[in-house]
């Protein structure tokens, strides 16, 4: 079975103080730590488990610069067999569609039975790349998978659907699945594990290698333009409601009402 897993390197935002870069369109990254996107971790784990069950080859792909190799190495340490880095200055500023375009151009030349993506990324948080990539590849897709079994040319997928329910569906291979948290518990990647794959060669592909014009990818190929980033208006410190208990409670009810909480 040939399994492809698309991953992304994202900043860890948990404790970080975010600052918007001078151009207003990105974050200042000097003090940020980066790691694999949490949902992509589930996707890699799912890919490796499919390989362990059915045999085959897992290929990890990411779009990024040489720093992004880090997450490919991590995927290799988890059990991926090969890794491809889509690296080109022309990819910069890509929206989800332009990312899906680049991934599609790479994957269409590879054999695949299952493509796995994270359901969403913790940075852009649009949750679009998987669905767009499936449409470009013209394969059936299932979003937000919380369970996955492959058997005899078909994938049986449990996924989150409307109203917080889950539905189990079956699709024929090849297909694309996006991984939601709960799909699995990813294995731990030890420092030693990373060191062991330090010498595995990572294939790099430029837009030209993929047969893509520079205008078809990156910002030029995007359908949605980012105008700028801004910090949300409210400072993140609780508004402490002072005064008498009744007054405080009344204000709180007012706040809840404003937020649609009542």
């Amino acid at each position: 079975m040939d399994i492809i897993v698309c991953i992304k390197r994202v900043p860890d935002l948990a404790e970080a103080g975010l600052e918007i870069a001078a151009d207003g369109r990105g974050l200042r990254t000097e003090d940020l730590d980066f790691d694999i996107n949490e949902w992509d971790d589930y996707a890699v784990e799912a890919a490796v488990r499919l390989k362990e069950q059915h045999g085959g080859v897992v290929t990890a792909i990411t779009v990024g610069d040489e720093d992004a190799e880090e997450v490919l190495r991590r995927a290799l340490a988890m059990g991926a067999d090969q890794a491809i880095l889509l690296d080109d200055a022309a990819f910069a500023g890509a929206d989800p569609f332009a990312i899906a375009t680049a991934l599609h151009a790479c994957i269409r030349s590879l054999p695949f039975d299952v493509v796995l993506c994270g359901a969403v990324t913790s940075d852009g948080a649009s949750g679009q790349v998987g669905g767009m990539l499936a449409a470009l590849l013209d394969v059936p897709q299932v979003a937000l998978a919380t369970g996955l079994e492959v058997d005899g040319g078909r994938a049986r997928v449990r996924h989150e659907v409307e109203g917080g329910l889950e539905r189990e569906v079956e699709v024929a291979l090849p297909c694309l699945i996006t991984a939601q948290s709960g799909l699995n518990q990813p294995r731990y990647v030890s420092i030693r594990g990373i060191r062991k794959v330090a010498d595995v060669a990572i294939a790099a592909r430029s837009a030209g290698d993929l047969g893509l014009a520079a205008t078809a990818v990156g910002e030029a190929g995007s359908r949605v333009r980012l105008e700028g980033l801004l910090l949300p208006p409210a400072g993140k410190r609780a508004e402490i409601l002072e005064g008498s208990l009744d007054a405080a409670v009344a204000t709180l009810v007012e706040r809840l009402r404003e937020r649609g909480g009542l």
């Binding site: 790691d35 988890m78 518990q185 990813p186 294995r187 731990y188 990647v189 030890s190 594990g193």
Partner: peptide, 16 residues
Amino acid sequence: LVDDGRVPAGMQKALG
């Protein structure tokens, strides 16, 4: 166990 990736979830986070 660590080499094999078998680490409890809470501990994985702390190690990460």
